[in-house]
Design a protein around this nucleic acid. Sequence first.
DNA 1: TGTACATCAGTGAACGCGCGTTCACTGATGTAC
DNA 2: TGTACATCAGTGAACGCGCGTTCACTGATGTAC
Lengths: 215, 215
Amino acid sequence: VSTLKAMARPKPHYHHGDLRNALVEQALRLVEEAGAESFSLREAARLVGVSANAAYRHFADKSDLLLAVAAAGAHLQQQYLLRALSAVPERSTAAGAAIERLKAVGRGYVDFAVAHPELLRVMFGSRWPAPRNADGFRTTGPYALLGKTLDDLVSAGVLPAGRRPGAELKAWTVVHGFATLVIQGVAALQNKPPRNKAFEALFDFALIGLCGRMK
Amino acid sequence: VSTLKAMARPKPHYHHGDLRNALVEQALRLVEEAGAESFSLREAARLVGVSANAAYRHFADKSDLLLAVAAAGAHLQQQYLLRALSAVPERSTAAGAAIERLKAVGRGYVDFAVAHPELLRVMFGSRWPAPRNADGFRTTGPYALLGKTLDDLVSAGVLPAGRRPGAELKAWTVVHGFATLVIQGVAALQNKPPRNKAFEALFDFALIGLCGRMK
DNA sequence: TGTACATCAGTGAACGCGCGTTCACTGATGTAC
DNA sequence: TGTACATCAGTGAACGCGCGTTCACTGATGTAC
């Protein structure tokens, strides 16, 4: 019997080796499935195959673990944005390219929200620390990427330099508002075709608003 | 001793009389203080001065009570919007009046979000039933009010009729996005003066985007 | 290369807690005659 | 107007539950000599 037991034993190592990451990934998965509200540290540990207690070797407490989940979410979001940017095809004009890049950032943001709604909620729910600029906005992550894209829009001559200040907030408000409406279940935005159509309309709207004229 | 006890007894009536409303109001208060996440039915009943059990005379379960809270929140929100609309001063031109009314709706929406962030979260978190139009949007509440305001904008000659379709979604996205950023703690929007400044800039941006030209 | 030992990363049992919900009940209310 | 009785709106005790967290512990790891 003891031989069988030893054979069936699933844990070859007493030390996990990468428990911290394993817990964060499992927690992220659980959050995405059922939301942060019903997330439990014990369940995450259980599924990783470790005692609930072991988590306290790596995290101060439950909220600390969720903070790590939020950070992982930010990293994933960044990947979405960069992937969307790199998928933009070449353009003949700098103006066309700059516009398409701005659209890509927006699309990446929305795609991330659609694919990981609960994760986005956790990221916005938890005030994890991030460097901010003088205006009180985060200098890393989507906000910074958006800023760079808007700079390009000025260089390309699409966005008048005089209208550049405050453009981040406008663009971010639109894209975040749209993503929020989508993940909060607005019926008209639940299927992809109408959602894409709404996104296009919204982008045109935002671009006109930003530039102060029809393109 | 028993006399003192009788004198101190706070409940003159075995029947509460208006327990349902009392529970909803208490629950709403608790949600606003600490969020729906940590809300407990027992605490609400306790604070109303009634056994936890009594709540089940009026609500199927906890989530049913929260649904009622969301409905009460919607009613309160409507009051904010109507109050903001009625505070709009008279204007010499129909165009000016229509623009100011649109701005008032937006301001009311943001003011509600700032004053009752957790309540707004509950309202968007719970899928309480509401009539929808053919486009999948709710036909009551802020969305309908917004529609009417936009119609006025067309009548006043500010918004070209050709640009009217889809205008609700654009306006709603901006105002909801802004409210969401505010209540989610974006540092630059936490104090009233900069928030108002940002709102003004955002409104101008949105109006240009809606109308397709500078005003 | 071998060994002693500090440090590290886990275990397993237990804690107290507040929760949502159910049970059998009882006091108050209102209505038919 | 009085009374019998069905209905309604509460009570209080109890349930089982999973949770976060703490405790004393032990097996594995790595390093100094």
